[in-house]
């Protein structure tokens, strides 16, 4: 395992910052009088990918696809059941809390609901100062200066620092969350449905802000969302999740212009489009997402797939490389 110092020597443009190998998270289902484990919800069931420094990887999926669980495991907010997480080439899968703490400085998360994620009893200054207190040796004066600087960076006024979260609108609160996440100069930020609760005009402001900050701070984003249009706008590469597994992962252009997995195709054709002239062929999916506690055998998507054949019920498709970084897990593309 390379130490942090060695790694900085061999820095290149395509350096991997996060690597996830066969990551799994099974939540036990307890039942009966003795509360024995009677089954598992396979929230994430074997996911492998890496994220390059400075890029934005978008993860899309519907509710229950496991995308948020995945994000939380990478930050070690949830313990993985199996698999490996590498952050800057260090295996952090089983690090103890005190060893994790210095690494947490480099990874931050922005949540969906800025009403729930900001402590209502703390002023904006206290909120943004908190990570600085824990993670740095800054003096009080330096911290106050940093708070002012951050507020201006995210488009709020320095004088806003004495206000409390309830005095702000949803978009402004999300700006506070972003300032808080960026306070300790992280390298890697997970945005978990970070703009989903915002109105479109405000959503656009926050997305533009996130792009600007990415450039200014050299950030790497894992952008988790159910909204394919937003993910397309902000991502360099996109992974599509279905029932705890990656169905397809590819550079943005390939996913949207040449989707290979029938699920990706259906997902894209389900999005209502504002182009009123475009002729569209809609592949509307039948049925609902199966329960992750009892997923179908073989390919998890086969129960809703218009192209399903016999093999899909038997073998679980693995991701296969279709060229130029385009991976798909589907038997249609078997040799």
């Amino acid at each position: 395992m390379a130490t942090v110092d060695e790694k900085q020597v061999v820095q290149t443009d395509q350096e991997t910052i996060v690597k996830v190998e066969d990551l799994k998270k099974y939540f036990p289902i307890k039942g009966g009088i003795l509360k024995r484990t009677i089954g598992h919800v396979k929230a994430v069931d074997g996911v492998t990918f890496d994220i390059k420094k400075g890029e934005t990887l978008g993860i899309v999926g519907e509710s229950g696809s496991g995308k948020s669980t995945l994000g939380r495991m990478i930050l070690r907010l949830l313990e993985p059941t199996e698999g490996k997480i590498l952050f800057q080439e260090n295996d952090i899968t089983h690090l103890k809390n005190h060893k994790m703490r210095p690494i947490r400085k480099d990874m931050q998360i922005i949540f969906q609901d800025p009403f729930a994620s900001l402590n209502t009893k703390m002023s904006v200054e206290q909120l943004i100062e908190e990570p600085l207190l824990i993670q740095t040796n800054m003096t009080k004066k330096e911290r106050k200066e940093k708070v002012k600087e951050l507020l201006e960076k995210v488009g709020l006024r320095a004088s806003d620092r004495l206000k409390y979260p309830h005095e702000f609108s949803g978009g402004q609160r999300q700006r506070i969350s972003i300032a808080r996440a960026l306070a300790i100069n992280p390298k890697f930020v997970i945005a978990d449905e970070a703009v989903s609760a915002l109105d479109v005009s405000i959503q656009a402001q926050v997305l533009n802000l996130m792009s600007d900050l990415q450039e200014d701070f050299g950030l790497t984003y894992l952008f988790i969302s159910h909204d394919l249009s937003v993910v397309k706008h902000i991502s360099d590469r996109v992974g599509v999740m279905y029932l705890g597994r990656l169905a397809e992962i590819a550079p943005k252009k390939d996913i949207y212009e040449n989707p290979l997995h029938p699920y990706t195709q259906a997902l894209l054709s389900s999005i209502p489009d504002t182009d009123v002239d475009r002729e569209r062929e809609t592949v509307h999916l039948e049925g609902d997402l199966p329960s992750p506690s009892n997923p179908p055998s073989g390919c998890a998507f086969r129960t809703r797939c218009p192209m399903a054949h016999e093999r899909c019920a038997v073998d679980r498709p693995e991701l296969q490389h279709m060229g130029e970084g385009h991976y798909v897990a589907c038997h249609l593309y078997d040799e």
């Binding site: 479109v200 656009a204 997305l207 249009s229 397309k232 706008h233 999005i271 489009d273 504002t274 475009r278």
Partner: peptide, 13 residues
């Protein structure tokens, strides 16, 4: 204009 689209390529919203 503030709406991202899956069919358009926009640099900034």
């Amino acid at each position: 204009e503030s709406l991202p689209s899956v069919h358009k390529e926009e640099e900034r919203l």
